[in-house]
Write a protein that binds this DNA or RNA. Structure first.
Lengths: 183, 183
DNA sequence: TGCACCTTTCGATCGCTATTGAAAATTGTA
DNA sequence: TACAATTTTCAATAGCGATCGAAAGGTGCA
């Protein structure tokens, strides 16, 4: 007969699995790869520092794969390496704070995706400017396209500066956003 | 010798291509597929109502592919079908307003991605509740995990209600956000 | 210093989604 | 109503990133 303890542990494992599966699905939303997300999910939900072998076993992922994805997670800053005394293995632990994780992901995505887009848009705008087009500033098709690129730039630079502000002063904006959501 | 007009058109085409390529890269950011994004990019930047054949030729995409992706775009509400008199072909035209496009995409993603995640998290939380776990509310591992799920839920419901508010009253929140970004 | 343990790298595969193209369905016109 | 023009569907295929696993590379302890 199973002990009460064992039954509870069983249930916890089940919830953890569900959670990892969920994280897997959230991957697209956060813009990271599914396996990376699953590993992070496991580390987040258990709250423990796990070794590569722990993760391999628990998620049935190969050693190489775990290694690669863990380094990415460390690179993103979502996971920290932890050394345990008297143990040569490395252990890995997730950040605990949800807002901090969100901020890190947002910062990465801004740098990797948003910034290059804004730069390219600026170059497009430049290419359609009267100077480059050779004086015919009133050329209709060019003007129209220039306008649309501008609309987009306005929107994206707004998003950009909102993000920037957020990274600079977590606290204030965080509360402002919470307030906006309420009312 | 080429006319001035022809040279200008050439330059405009080049910028359009660059823009489509850019849209292609933005796809992950918006969470839509690259080809869908390219088609939408073309429709947005030209501002014109194009036929399937126009798009096929311009982007070198097969008929079936264009058809499928156009219906998705129509389904998302980013593109509208346009009928021209004396012409059996259908034409397709992008929305022009950047904020409106953003709202549409955000609404879709909330419904498809965020809502299911929040539901699953609630179920996870439920599964760890004292009632389900059978009275032992103070069980440590369960409590810890429950706490972490809760943190996440708080964060995601905040995002959710912010989005909700935004969909309800575009104008007010839009300005509030712009204000936040400024200062 | 040498050895055992652990991690990383990387070429070979795999699996999945995107894409094609042709056949079927639909639509509008004479 | 029949036919031609256009769109949609869908089975086959292609392409690409994810994954594996073994070999090479590090690292710390005796």
């Amino acid at each position: 007969m199973k002990t009460r303890r064992a039954v509870l542990d069983q249930q916890i494992l089940q919830v953890e699995d569900q959670f990892v599966e969920l994280w897997n699905n959230m991957a697209t939303l956060w813009g990271i790869s599914p396996t990376m997300a699953r590993i992070h999910g496991l580390l987040y939900i258990t709250g423990a520092a796990l070794s590569m072998d722990d993760i391999m076993e628990r998620l049935a992922i190969s050693r190489g794969n775990v290694s690669m994805n863990l380094s990415k997670l460390v690179e993103w800053g979502l996971v920290r390496r932890v050394h345990k005394k008297r143990d040569r293995k490395e252990y890995y632990e997730s950040l605990h704070d949800v807002w901090e994780m969100f901020t890190l992901v947002a910062a990465q995505r801004k740098r990797r995706e948003l910034d290059p887009i804004i730069n390219t848009l600026r170059r497009c705008k430049e290419a359609l400017s009267p100077e480059v087009l050779g004086g015919r500033a009133d050329d209709d098709p060019a003007r129209e396209r220039s306008q649309r690129i501008n609309d987009l730039l306005k929107f994206l630079t707004l998003v950009d500066s909102l993000a920037q502000k957020f990274f600079e002063s977590h606290r204030g904006l965080r509360e402002a956003i919470a307030l906006l959501a309420q009312e």
